[in-house]
Design a protein around this nucleic acid. Structure first.
Length: 271
DNA sequence: ATCGCCTCCTGCGCGC
DNA sequence: TGCGCGCAGGAGGCGA
């Protein structure tokens, strides 16, 4: 999916179309996402005005009176702003119509995404309450990450992809950040020096910021609110580059499986 | 508490 | 051209 840069790109893209708009209609074309879309949403949303669009990890939070609509794009989800006259596409599952005559459409072929509701503070939702810090915030720093790594035998890649440790880092950016930091993805989290953890924290922030600037990475599914892809793909160093030369040393990039996920690294630069 | 594996689902690219 | 196979950006939940 959409990792943090893609979700942030979507959030920024839809924000100007949604802010201060009234929701005039709610359409659930297919409620069968990761969890069923609650049928009661219509009553909660219709006639309400959108007050803010925020993001927490990979969740988009749409604040209205009394609560928030919470969206997750799963692995293949995307959000688009459409004209109501435009025909629905297959896999347009959830649609909001606004009084500016625009629609927000959630498109998600694999249906791993989610549409949730939380009354009051959305961060109290059970799925959000235990999330780790935002990677671009000051709370995600060397001391914090180093502390979470103590006595951990899991690989560092799985560690930084664990949303209870830090949110928003998915399969692409985990490989990329570890490359920048020179750390082997399989290395046990507990066996990395504080100095190298410091490099990893910096690498994480660097890669996520750069990807947001480019509107995210489009491999196959991800598109921005206007249907355009993200352009970070051309800046990737190792992800999907099996047997290509490492941009640093020329050694061939290796692909392994770690925790059921494809993982890419340079065997010479990363230890 | 932590870890590794399984699962949900559709679509696409590849090799035969 | 068609078919079967493997793989895909997430992450909760389970059993060990």
């Amino acid at each position: 999916m959409p990792e943090l840069p893609e979700v942030e790109t979507s959030r920024r893209g839809i924000e100007p179309y949604l802010l201060q708009q009234e929701i005039t209609a709610v359409l659930i074309r297919n409620p069968q996402l990761r969890w069923p879309i609650p049928r009661t949403l219509n009553n909660k949303l219709e006639g309400k005005t959108i007050q803010a669009i925020n993001r927490r990890g990979k969740y988009i939070l749409i604040k209205i009176e009394k609560g928030s609509l919470i969206l997750h794009l799963g692995m293949s989800g995307s959000l688009r702003i459409s004209d109501p006259a435009t025909a629905f596409r297959k896999h347009d599952h959830f649609i909001l119509t606004f009084n500016n005559n625009k629609q927000l459409r959630l498109h998600d072929p694999r249906r791993f995404g989610a549409v949730l509701w939380q009354t009051g503070n959305p961060l109290k939702h059970p799925l959000l309450a235990k999330l780790g810090p935002e990677p671009l915030s000051d709370k995600f720093n060397t001391d914090y990450l180093y502390k979470t790594c103590r006595n951990r035998k899991a690989s560092i890649k799985q560690h930084i992809m664990n949303s209870h440790i830090v949110v928003g880092v998915g399969n692409i950016y985990a490989s990329e950040a570890l490359f920048l930091a020179g750390i082997h993805p399989k290395r046990a989290a507990g066996r990395i020096s504080k100095h190298r953890i410091e490099k990893l924290v910096a690498a994480n922030k660097q890669i996520l910021n750069a990807a947001i600037k480019q509107g995210g990475t489009t491999l196959r599914d991800f598109v921005r609110e206007d249907g355009q892809p993200g352009y970070f793909k051309q800046w990737l160093n190792v992800y999907g580059k099996t047997d290509d030369p490492c941009p640093e040393c020329g050694n061939l990039i290796k692909q392994i499986t770690l925790g059921q996920r494809s993982t890419f690294y340079c065997p010479k630069c990363q230890h």
